[in-house]
Design a protein around this nucleic acid. Structure first.
Lengths: 296, 296
DNA sequence: CCTCATTTATAGCTTCAAGCTATCAATTTA
DNA sequence: TAAATTGATAGCTTGAAGCTATAAATGAGG
């Protein structure tokens, strides 16, 4: 009982003629004749009462016709949907990000949504360490924007841009005057840092530990905006990605570069190397690459 | 995109292994491998991420899996239903009857329902003349019980039993005394007869016209029971099939045979000769034949 | 680190279903 | 009665779908 045969059968029922149906189906009339005969054999009862002039459906034929119509339409829907899926993947595009992308990714998404309006984009803050690779391999994310360089056989990882983590202080803060600030100068300052799990937190703590300094963590925040608010009140100092500050012009804040190589990091775009990427995923990938051509 | 291939695909997804799936499907592993590859080509995107150790569904695979499950289950339902239809026809058994069968057909139906409990039996009072043949040919009825002998190429018609139409009067009626009654004796009697469309009405009127008598039709009824009620009140006389009276023993009623060959009729069972009869129809046919073995 | 076992992919062969053309048979129409 | 139309049958051809044998990949275990 093949879908194709049901299609043949339905066409014959619609046309009430083998010859006409055969024409519609682009097969010869004898082939169609045979196909229906086989279908009847398979079903176990006649479907059409026919002679050279008249054609009528039997009881069994009527029932099969009804059911077949439903099944065929659903088969068509399935095909259409798979056609759609071929272009858009599952309809979801899941991207793992670090926090500092927030200043540029909205623009990319805006451009992308024009081309793939039906795609539902999910941004996930990918946690540190092994979770990054896991999220790609286990299909949790399609693409990853991370500051970890991933050196794995199956994962392609290329640099997008470099960014520094910069010190931010209140303009009235004593260190604001100094020419250059080093990490050890911050040892006794009330420090504002991202909560556990954010990559920036790890980067900063790593930088401190390189210089054997133990910062005084006073505040743990989830959004950089919150950190800046605290700094505006001169409640402490913080270190955040430079890109995050590029837009804001706030007279009460002072930015300082800190001379620590660990506070310079490269942001990478990563994805599974040998896995098929749906065009919708591919397109986003290229949109991002186009935004940062210098490094590629 | 064949149902069979979807079945293959779903089985692989369930087993997460080609070899195991191939075993379940009773085909070789390479055949299955090929089938899936072709399916992927047809869909246009990979469905399974696979190497010799691991197997995972892609986004497209997940979606096709879900949809295929639905489609396959519906295909199974369709097959089951056609299986059912093969045994029971359309699920309906439509029988055209004349009124006088009412005294014996319930017994046949009772026996039949035991064997085919899922069959829905419809009894239709078939109208006179050409409508009888039409109802068979146009699939309105599967079987026909009629007092017309049908002499047509495509219709099989065999006699079940003979029955007389008998006069019924009130015991106080003057004619109740007489040895024999003839139709002309009824010319001035208030006559009770079936309404237009019933075969018995036609038979009776034909009998009258043979003897050039014009009965005084006072009452037209739809059920013989109603006619008998009227006779019990001595409001008129009627002629009804002898079989209909066989059960009733009513002291106030008198039965009389009328000497008119036109009032003797044969009841036939008729059906389409060359048309496939579902076993459920066949079975009913034989049940009826078994009830009236003398004539067959 | 090197087998062994397991699993999927590839290559090449075979077979049968599903198509084709040609033609017959039945039946309506002119 | 001839022509036209339509479905059925016969016989041929081809390609999809199966098979076996074998290669390639990889994880497990000594």
């Amino acid at each position: 009982m093949d879908i194709k045969h049901l299609h043949y059968f339905v066409t014959v029922c619609d046309q009430l003629s083998y010859s006409k149906a055969a024409q519609k189906l682009h097969i010869s009339q004898p082939s169609l004749s045979n196909a229906i005969k086989n279908l009847e054999q398979e079903v176990g009862s006649p479907l059409l009462e026919r002679n050279t002039r008249k054609m009528e459906l039997t009881d069994a034929g009527k029932i099969l016709y009804q059911k077949s119509l439903v099944l065929l339409s659903q088969m068509n829907i399935l095909k259409k949907e798979m056609e759609e899926v071929k272009l858009t993947g599952s309809g979801d595009l899941i991207i793992g990000i670090i926090e500092s992308v927030k200043h540029w990714i909205p623009k990319v998404i805006r451009g992308y949504q024009g081309r793939f309006p039906s795609i539902n984009i999910k941004l996930i803050e990918v946690l540190s360490g092994k979770a990054v690779k896991e999220s790609l391999r286990k299909y949790h994310t399609h693409l990853l924007i991370t500051n970890q360089f991933i050196d794995e056989e199956d994962i392609e990882s290329f640099p997008l841009y470099d960014e520094r983590l910069m010190l931010v202080l209140h303009k009235d803060h004593p260190l604001a005057e100094k020419e250059s600030v080093r990490l050890k100068d911050l040892a006794s300052e009330p420090f504002i840092i991202s909560t556990e799990g954010f990559q920036t937190r790890e980067d900063i703590l790593t930088a401190f530990s390189f210089e054997l300094v133990n910062p005084q963590i006073k505040f743990e925040i989830e959004r950089f905006e919150t950190a800046l608010t605290l700094v505006r009140e001169n409640l402490g100092v913080t270190i955040i990605p430079e890109n995050y500050l590029s837009g804001s012009t706030d007279a009460s804040l002072v930015r300082k570069t800190i001379d620590s190589p660990a506070l310079e990091r490269t942001v990478y775009l990563a994805y599974m190397k040998n896995r098929y990427l749906a065009p919708a995923v591919q397109a986003f990938l290229e949109e991002v690459r186009g935004k940062f051509p210098s490094k590629t």
